[in-house]
Design a protein around this nucleic acid. Structure first.
Lengths: 188, 188
DNA sequence: TTAGTTATTGACCGAACGGTCAATAACTAA
DNA sequence: TTAGTTATTGACCGTTCGGTCAATAACTAA
């Protein structure tokens, strides 16, 4: 019918995501996105429309890949306590490896964008909900009461996000370990 | 000796802080700062040097006022549990009143700036430390062991920051209440 | 009164910003 | 082979960005 795309859309979104993840929305320029994706400006605009749509696509991709990886852990094998522990261990490990200083695009989006951008806010809200429900289900074998499980899950999400803020703020890694350990005290 | 300043520096810094608090560093333009402070561009540059210095002054002012208000609570009257509870109640209340959507300039700075700005990172790191120590001291009557108190304090800071992220992300207020309640379970 | 110093003012600057578009290339269906 | 469609290209656009500066105003010490 027409000329086919010469790029792999997933790869491009992945590269856009990495830039937004590292620098945030406002601090990222179109030049950054051009350099990271290997596409020219016109192609990016042709494919996505505008910078904001690129960010939204990146955020959704983060949800589908990175957040989903966490949810997979929660849906996998092991006791509730083991699963939650693994969640925090991921933060500690990625901090040690200097991977974007342990940052989390979801947290960044929540703080940088959600207050003024309803689309981002909706996406963040949905993803937080998804994560909370996955934690609830991981807890359900030991906490059959739904309200109790939901409340504990909310708390774990908070502590998890908090550890992301600490990590990026340069707080000592021990603080994240301490957060994990105390969290686990409340997980049966 | 010379012409005196025609503005109250504290008031100006307060107004700059409010803009950075609400919009973040990159999303704030000099026009925003001019409009909020009532000064003209030249005066702002004369007083601070550049935009980055304005941000740093705002962040330090946030520490001296808002964070200090939290520390005052921790140094004040009441049981450890009461004090920690009050910390979280502040988040819940400011969220309800729509005050910058419950955001916290310190968290924002940590996520938006700390990874790439060593001055901001140092300031954030110091302030987190100050807050953690204040919590430790509030806990000390019930937890004489310093290491134990430090570990629990680290955890509380995490949960506290996490609740700030949830608040701005539009998560239901109940999640912050749940975070508070579970936190308090670990406070003797 | 005056000389010296600093604050204020608003016009001005080059650079970088996000975004557009006409020309061209690459493909497919007929 | 050709007509139709879409992707790619890179030059180009107006706007806004952070920042500067010469002129002027407001003050103080002598």
């Amino acid at each position: 019918m027409a000329r086919p795309r010469q790029f792999d859309e997933t790869r491009v979104i992945e590269s856009l995501m990495n830039v937004f993840w590292e620098k945030g929305y406002e601090a990222t320029s179109m030049q950054d996105l051009v350099a990271a994706s290997g596409l020219l400006k016109g192609s990016l605009y042709g494919a996505f429309g505008d910078k904001h749509a690129m960010y939204l696509a990146a955020l959704k991709h983060y949800d589908r890949t990175r957040i989903q990886a966490g949810i997979d852990i929660l849906n996998g094998e092991g006791s509730p306590r083991q699963k939650i522990a693994r969640l925090f261990d991921n933060v500690i490990e990625s901090t040690k490896r200097g991977l974007f200083a342990g940052g989390c695009l979801l947290c960044n989006a929540s703080l940088e964008m959600a207050a003024t951008d309803s689309q981002v806010k909706a996406e963040v809200k949905t993803t937080i909900r998804r994560l909370k429900i996955a934690i609830m289900e991981a807890l359900s074998p030991r906490i059959p009461n739904e309200d109790q499980a939901a409340a504990l899950a909310a708390f774990i999400v908070s502590a998890y996000f908090g550890s992301r803020v600490l990590a990026k703020g340069g707080a000592p890694a021990a603080m994240i370990g301490d957060t994990r350990d105390h969290c686990l005290q409340l997980v049966p």
